[in-house]
Each structure stands twice: as C-alpha cells, then as structure tokens.
Computed example of a mutant assay.
Amino acid sequence: MIRFALITVAGLSAACTAQDEVSRAALARAPAPAGASYEGIETRLLDNDLVAFHVKMRGARGAQDVTDYAECAAAQYTLIRGFGFARHLRTKTAEVSGLWQADAIYTISAAIPAGLRTIDAEVTVENCKSNGIPTV
C-alpha cells in the first residue's frame, strides 16, 4: 500500500508541467507595499535573448519587493520584444539609506525555456498590474 502511494505521488509530481510552474510563480507575487515609490527601470540588451534590468525603489519591505519589480519589468520587456517567456538567471539586491536596488538578468524566448525559474510574460504582466507593481 505504501509503495502504491509513493508511486502515485511521484506520478502526480511528474505530471506538473513547466506551464504549471510558470503560473504558480506569477501568482505568488505579493501586492505592492503601501507607500512604495518605484524610482525607475534601466534595461540593457546584452545579447539577442539576454537582458539586464536595474531597478530602484523606496519603501520596499525587503529584497523580495525590489526583486518582484525587476521581474515585472522583465515580463513587460519580453512582451515588447515579441516574446512570450523569460527565464530568470540571477538577481542581486542591495539597500542603502532606504533605496533598494536590484540588478537582474533574464533570457527571453518565444517558447517556454528549460529550467525552473521561468515566467509566462503575459500572465506575469497582468499579475503585476493587479498588484500595483509597474512595468517598463
């Protein structure tokens, strides 16, 4: 009986698609903090599908807020370039005197890229808008 349960759990886990992971990540974003001031987005195209985002904000509750801001910028930029998906490579955050900054790098693509940290740009942009987080 236990062996059957383990096989069932393993089968259900394997049934989760990359799209499920993408959607769950977008829905996990918290609403913008009250009184937050989004100070701007700088975008640099590093290669055809490799993009860096530098974002600044005041009033963040912590690193996750500024990371979410960078992801919202990446999602909108992905749509602007005519692609549907992005994959997060890395984000560095820092806070100095109340100004939070994030330096994030994403790849963008037409199809869902390999990896666990992928985003569906259209779903993410809609989620950002509904949570009051600005995009590019």
Rank of each mutant, 00 (worst) to 15 (best):
V22L: 15
R87F: 03
L45E: 10
T17N: 01
R61G: 12
P33F: 08
R3M: 03
T43E: 13
I105T: 15
P134A: 05
L89I: 12
I105S: 11
L27P: 01
G40K: 03
I2P: 00
D103I: 02
L27W: 10
N48F: 11
G132W: 01
E71M: 14
Q76N: 09
A30L: 14
H54I: 05
G62M: 05
Y38T: 01
T67P: 06
T107G: 08
L79W: 13
R81S: 02
R61Y: 01
K129E: 12
Y77D: 00
M57V: 03
E39T: 02
A63D: 11
D20F: 02
F85N: 11
L99M: 10
A30E: 12
A114G: 15
G82T: 10
A25F: 13
S97T: 06
A52H: 03
G98M: 06
F4T: 05
R3G: 05
Y106C: 04
A110I: 12
P33T: 02
A25V: 09
G82R: 00
R3Q: 04
L6Y: 06
I112L: 08
R29I: 11
Q64M: 15
V55D: 07
C72W: 06
Q76W: 14
R24Y: 11
V55P: 07
A114L: 10
A70Y: 10
A86C: 09
E95R: 09
I119K: 13
L12R: 01
S130R: 14
V9P: 02
A30I: 09
I41L: 14
D120Q: 04
V96S: 07
A30W: 15
L79F: 07
K129V: 06
